[in-house]
């Protein structure tokens, strides 16, 4: 290493990688990964979330897993929790929807209303 710039480069690069171990101040993503979620395809959804976050250098957003939320029929379920604790629940997710959530919600701050649990329930009711 010849210079302080190089030291700083290493620091910034590694900081991103270690962000998982720090407390995050912003969004947090939780994926339902019980048997029901996994069977419905939660794993590819999670991989897509991680890939998309990585592509956009948002390693400060932790992706964690949780158990069964109880509405197994709507799995895979992804929840986005904001810094203030407010929660958005996305249901019947797939890889493309996951990428959309990262782009629209995490990056731009716009909730993908059509993917939320509310929209899905409304749709179900109108079908009846």
């Amino acid at each position: 290493m010849k210079s302080i710039q190089e030291l700083e480069e290493i620091r910034n690069r590694m900081r991103d990688q270690m962000a998982t171990r720090e407390k995050s101040g912003g969004y947090r993503i939780v994926v339902g990964m019980a048997t029901c979620g996994i069977a419905a395809g939660a794993r590819p959804v999670m991989r897509a979330l991680i890939e998309e976050l990585q592509k956009r250098n948002r390693n400060d957003v932790p992706v964690t897993m949780t158990g069964c939320i109880g509405v197994c029929r709507l799995e895979p379920i992804v929840e986005v929790i904001a810094a203030d604790g407010s929660k958005t629940t996305y249901v019947k997710m797939d890889e493309n929807k996951a990428r959309r959530v990262v782009a629209e919600h995490i990056i731009n701050g716009n909730v993908c209303v059509d993917l939320t649990i509310g929209a899905a329930e409304k749709q179900a009711k109108s079908k009846e």
């Binding site: 991103d16 998982t20 171990r21 976050l53």
Partner: peptide
């Protein structure tokens, strides 16, 4: 660079 969703510290 690879991003890991979980780190297991032992």
């Amino acid at each position: 660079m690879h991003f890991y969703r979980a780190h297991v510290l032992c």
